[in-house]
Design a protein around this nucleic acid. Structure first.
Lengths: 249, 249
DNA sequence: GCTTGCTGTCTTGTATGCAAGAGAGCCACA
DNA sequence: TGTGGCTCTCTTGCATACAAGACAGCAAGC
């Protein structure tokens, strides 16, 4: 952990750190990501932080509110539906395109499902969230197609943000069983069935969302004024718009 | 075309301009995109250009060679295979997920296929290239899923770069027929068949590539030295590494 | 009490300046 | 003639300075 090595790595790791923070549910949607704060945290100048933010913006992970700051996206109900639809398309397409499950792949997934079980037993919810998303990414990875894996990673990050907004209770056992079923189908080489199970699994999770719960309290006024349903700039009507009282710089 | 309006728009349009230039085959793979050149061209400072470049980099459209410059990516043969595989996954998954073809959608596609015919008759190869890629993007657009549409747009851009590198001759008629078949299946509501035809169509195009033609002449030496197949930094062994003699600034 | 306008502070937007490095071209030398 | 090294130019990398705007908090007026 040399200082020099850290700062070298920090260049692209701002992105990775934030994404991994989201994937493990440690960063909530709407979290403010101040350029100065991150710059101080990572020991770099604002320039680098901005670059990372812009990259994350094109990946659909953060968005900028002009002269106000960068925020982790808070997907709207419509966004949520679109993300789940996209995942169904990609994951089903991926499974259907797979021909064999290699020995290593089989082992990797079996190990993963064990980890899920362990986390459930331990009641480690953050780790569980991470594992539940990671299962799908692993499938993409062992298909060998890094393009699809990257796409799915970003979609999974958004999925986790969605679940933090709209999922009242976490049916971990149900998800785990879904994963097991998909794995079983893959083991028997029935990828068409695996794809179908994957779609059903995603449907199930989507159904578990309460997409009306967090609908903003202004929706009545908004609709009577016939404004767009929920713009990016109307976001962050969050309960804690204040920054942590660290005065930074 | 007011000056002010142009410069306001220019901010994000650098990205769009380059992508659209690639989609219509006006920008070749390996093209150098100098920060100063673009800054002068768009009338903005290097800062904005860099932002656009970084966004395009995360989209897989350009890459940077440190202290040498930004270049439009030159996909390797392995990249080409991965891109086609990803497209098969996404497009087949998309078509399978579609339930109905709306009246407008039907009209839009019919119009598009007519445009393809016109461009073929006119022998307008650039426009033809654009249309051939755009067909797939349109399908994604009329599915209503902008996430998938965006993904497919970037993949199509890369596909076109690939075709400029590895496609010796352009079988436009063959592609057009493939599109027609997909459209017919969609019209009859048989999306499973449309998906299957789409996969076959992409296979066909991929088969038309000569993925050994442009393999770099150093491959023998490279493999005997057991170096990595083709690194990003080994790119731009292109015939014209020189910049156009505009002295800029 | 409630609203409305103002002002100070804190944020990002953007340009610019300097440093580091890569590479082309030249020159000396064998 | 061919080869090695040097230098000089041009490129991006990165930090910093300043400008512009958003918002909270306050004060004045109704």
């Amino acid at each position: 952990m040399q200082e020099s090595h850290t700062s070298e790595t920090a260049q692209k790791s701002i992105e990775a750190t934030i994404v991994s923070g989201i994937l493990s549910a440690k960063i909530r949607p709407g979290t403010r990501l101040g350029e100065n704060q991150l710059a101080a945290l990572f020991g770099v100048s604002r320039t680098r932080v901005r670059e990372a933010m812009m990259r994350l913006e094109t990946r659909g992970i953060v968005h900028v509110s002009p002269r106000r700051g960068w925020f982790v996206v808070e997907p709207s109900a419509e966004d949520a539906i679109a993300v789940y639809e996209a995942r169904r398309v990609v994951e089903a397409g991926l499974l259907r395109s797979m021909a064999v499950l290699t020995e290593e792949g089989c082992k990797a997934l079996a190990t993963h499902l064990n980890e899920e079980r362990n986390a459930m037993a331990a009641g480690d919810r953050q780790r569980l969230t991470y594992l539940m998303g990671d299962f799908h990414i692993r499938i993409a990875e062992l298909s060998g197609n890094t393009i699809i894996a990257d796409i799915l990673r970003d979609l999974t990050a958004r999925t986790i943000l969605i679940s933090m907004l709209y999922q009242s209770e976490f049916h971990a056992a149900q998800s785990h069983e879904g994963h097991c079923r998909i794995f079983q189908a893959m083991q028997t080489g029935d990828f068409v069935r695996a794809a179908q199970l994957s779609v059903e699994h995603l449907d199930e999770v989507e159904m578990g969302l309460d997409l009306t719960a967090r609908s903003d309290p202004l929706s009545d006024l908004r609709s009577s004024l016939s404004l767009p349903p929920r713009t990016a700039s109307s976001i962050s009507q969050q309960p804690h718009p204040k920054i942590t009282p660290s005065k930074e710089q």
